[in-house]
Write a protein that binds this DNA or RNA. Structure first.
Lengths: 131, 131
DNA sequence: CTTGACCTTCCAATGATGGGAATCCCCATC
DNA sequence: GATGGGGATTCCCATCATTGGAAGGTCAAG
């Protein structure tokens, strides 16, 4: 199939498929006489793998590692688990950081009367507060 | 003071101070005869404002809006509160998304025995699992 | 033989930050 | 007054993932 169909079947845009090939995440696709890229089911499978991993917040570098493990039938699951759990911790850390930001800001907002007066603890907090 | 001192006093790197000026977040700084930028206490104050807002996850575009409100003595606090609460919701949404990713991945990892066997539900989940 | 959908490559922008080069200014010391 | 060094200037490039567009080639249907 051509790149457009592969894109539709995998949920990865044609633009990104070419990009992933360019940065070495995917091997160079087979070409027809016309020069068009030609994909098979296994390629779509790999693309879906990439898409799911992206949805889970893995970076392309991490995905390259996961793909190598995925394609290596002899690899140990321990390595995969290690990568996955390290990523889980990074995700949870980021989530905590964002929550902390949100609650700080919500706290500032709670003390802002939010009417026509110019008095605003939010701006004061940003301007002068500690931290 | 020169840019290096202003950087130290505000916690914003000299590189970023120039960048903020270049993208219009800050007005062009005063210059000495030598061409060096010259900063006063109020400039440092503004830089600290920016830094705090960045720490709270505001984008530079959002900060531009907050700065305008901050400098406008007559503005209503309602507008500031509206911006702040909208940002709080965006932060909380992102935090929830990351938490969801983490728990999905943690769930997959929990079913991976993590030993020398190649069997791995994490990779299977990435390769074939539902959306 | 034209139309239109699809494909190709290449270049550039996004947003925030950082690295580094080449050059210049300022100040202290000899 | 020459020199050395630290700080300043501008400019270009890199990151990371993705998207947009331009200029052109290919293919199937009318």
């Amino acid at each position: 199939m051509r790149i457009g169909e592969a894109a539709k079947a995998s949920g990865v845009s044609a633009k990104m498929i070419r990009h992933y090939e360019a940065v070495g995440l995917l091997p160079a696709a087979a070409r027809r006489d016309s020069g068009y890229r030609d994909y098979g089911d296994s390629d779509v499978h790999a693309l879906r793998f990439i898409r799911r991993a992206r949805d889970l917040g893995f970076s392309l570098a991490e995905i390259a590692g996961l793909l190598a493990l995925w394609r290596d039938k002899a690899r140990a699951s321990a390595e995969v688990k290690r990568l996955a759990l390290a990523h889980v911790e990074a995700l949870e850390r980021k989530a905590r950081d964002l929550s902390a930001m949100a609650s700080t800001l919500r706290h500032l907002a709670a003390h802002c009367h939010g009417d026509a007066r110019p008095d605003c603890p939010i701006l004061e907090g940003l301007a002068g507060g500690g931290g």
